[in-house]
Design a protein around this nucleic acid. Structure first.
Lengths: 166, 166
DNA sequence: TTGTGTATATTCACTGGTTAGTATACATGG
DNA sequence: CCATGTATACTAACCAGTGAATATACACAA
């Protein structure tokens, strides 16, 4: 049931994650994911109904860790609120210098699936963004910032811009 | 020779433009482009060496008109420099409301081709961005803005953020 | 004017390879 | 014996790119 961590399933998601992120979703075949995970495509299809399901699971698995990472960057930064927000961008810039950096997985996925507006993966990406924006807004509100919602929105805009590659 | 406008070639690019932008590059087959252009795939391959060539031509064809549009939005806006910059974002926001809006074609293309770093289309996209940033910088410099380059860079960042979909 | 050659442009039919997804059988532990 | 999980081997579709033939147009010689 929900929450039951299935090691095989997680191994598949982990393999998919690496391949989908570095190569792109449409460029990676289900066979390639299965091979990377060390099992057969048929086994993969036992754990996932379809490739679309796998894509959705890939993004869903990135959701929490990604948010947690951002929050950690924020929390662990010294200084006032402004410095903490800046810390997120600084860390991001550092990551972007890494050769494996390929931009935001959520943004890239939604770019690839732009012709499938109802795709579950796109909904997951949108929800991810909304969660982060909401967290920012609440954080600003608790700090007594006026126009917290507006500021959160602007920061998200800048963040998406930073995420853009090329 | 260069500059010789070939109507068939342009018809193909026009068809490719519509399909690539609305559906995504990898989701659109060469056959589909040929059919949309009202000719055979083989004819398409007479005018373009490969699909990659066609992709590059698609982006190259978007380069000048896109820049011209942004400049026009800027030039035709009333008010001071700040208002003129804001006009770009206002127009963009209006476009983004249109149902056909799918974000920035250059960004989306480079997202789809992220696994092919040397692809000519990616270079065209990068050059497009650089051109616009350079134009912004020169415009700011002529207006006597201090830190024109820095400001141009920041605006581009915001712009990319605005372009992001989802 | 007529015939002929040549470059441009277009088509039909095909190949070789890849892909998402499946039918079926085999294992293994409770 | 049965549920869970895994593998082999397949299908049906799709797709980028090609070989070979054909049509059109224009230049130039007879």
């Amino acid at each position: 049931m929900a929450g039951t961590s299935n090691p095989t399933r997680e191994r598949i998601i982990s393999a998919a994650s690496k391949l989908f992120y570095s190569e792109g979703i449409r460029a990676v075949s289900v066979d390639a994911v299965a091979e990377k995970a060390g099992l057969t495509k048929r086994t993969l299809y036992y754990h996932f109904r379809s490739k679309d399901d796998l894509i959705a699971a890939y993004l869903a698995a990135r959701d929490q860790p990604n948010l947690a990472l951002f929050k950690r960057w924020f929390d662990e930064a010294d200084g006032n609120l402004s410095a903490k927000v800046r810390a997120i961008f600084v860390h991001l810039a550092r990551n972007a210098g890494h050769p494996k950096w390929k931009g935001c997985g959520f943004l890239r996925t939604s770019a690839e699936l732009a012709n499938l507006p109802g795709h579950p993966a796109i909904k997951i990406g949108a929800a991810h963004k909304k969660k982060f924006e909401a967290w920012l807004r609440v954080t600003f509100e608790e700090a007594g910032i006026v126009g917290a919602a507006r500021l959160a929105r602007q920061i998200l805009l800048l963040l998406d811009g930073s995420f853009a590659v090329v």
